[in-house]
Design a binder for these strands. Structure first.
Lengths: 177, 177
DNA sequence: ACCTGAACACCGTTCAAGT
DNA sequence: ACCTGAACACCGTTCAAGT
């Protein structure tokens, strides 16, 4: 005898995101998700293969939000947007590269950066440039969040110095083959 | 009646590093460490506050090895050394910023980068420059390891393009206040 | 003074039994 | 067709009891 569903994949992923942000990766347990969703833990396995798959769904939903918040034509706009996203959702941001989001989701997030780079350096050098800028922004934000910048100096202005250096270097006519 | 020690903090940390590299963070359990060290799990608590503290000791030992392997005067030398360290000890490299190594250990690792930057841009801009270069290198290596570069193109040459761009930009007379 | 067995609370996951 | 209680193997951690 069929029973009306008491939850949904969407609700499960959404609960997972809230719990991750509130309690960190250690707090994201099957039990915690089940409880928030109004069900017992074993029921989650009807909708999700295992905890790892749930974690990946959370990472995917997060990178998709990141992509949405990435607007503005310049590299500075994009870098600033990425940093403020990370500040409001630090755990989710971390999960993106910790767990590994799906290739499609990563490709979508790359689009705005690639476009900005194409404008600066042209089609041929755009991919390398995008990788350099994304690596820098991701590295800076991650190091900042983990408290790795401890040698003094202003961190906001270090971020500005980085984006200035990169933008300026990519705006130049071109140096070497 | 005192008993001769059956293990040591050093042996515990060393076992932790081996296990982390061999089995990943999920495999680094108190039980696994105890067994490799020839003792039962509860005994570890005589030498280590808890699992988290053990994890931090492992991260510290790893960043200290990283520091040792960071030689060469140019930023390219340092970036290449960092990448090859990460390739031989991926799990340990990840743990450095995941768990957060100690401020002193991070400061020691920063020294060679700071020195190379001082040569290029002078004392005043050295810290910002070091942060930009380190962020880029760390971000690139982390993204590469997590399989985030999926849009084609050669990854080695993207790494070269990054280090070229940064070195070149930092070598220039100076652009703006 | 270190080591251990036993115990506790908590994981993730499976599965037969309920509706 | 979904949901659950019970069960399993495995965590991290504490502590009284051994030597």
């Amino acid at each position: 005898m069929p029973t009306p569903d008491r939850t949904s994949l969407e609700a499960i992923v959404s609960a997972g995101r809230d719990i991750l942000e509130a309690s960190g990766p250690g707090g994201l347990t099957m039990n915690a998700v089940a409880e928030r969703v109004g069900v017992k833990a074993p029921s989650l396995y009807k909708r999700v293969r295992d905890k790892d798959a749930l974690f990946r769904l959370v990472a995917d939903a997060t990178i998709s939000d990141l992509t949405t918040s990435l607007h503005g034509p310049t590299l500075r706009d994009l870098a600033v947007a990425m940093r403020s996203f990370a500040q409001t959702r630090p755990q989710g941001f971390r999960a993106i590269f910790t767990t590994g989001a799906s290739p499609e989701a990563i490709a979508a997030a790359s689009e705005p950066v690639l476009r900005a780079c194409r404008n600066l350096v042209g089609e041929e050098r755009a991919l390398d440039a995008a990788r350099t800028v994304t690596s820098w922004a991701y590295g800076f934000i991650t190091m900042e969040m983990s408290g790795a910048f401890q040698l003094g100096g202003d961190i906001d202005s270090a971020f500005e110095a980085g984006i200035d250096l990169l933008t300026q270097a990519l705006s130049e006519p071109q140096a070497r083959a």
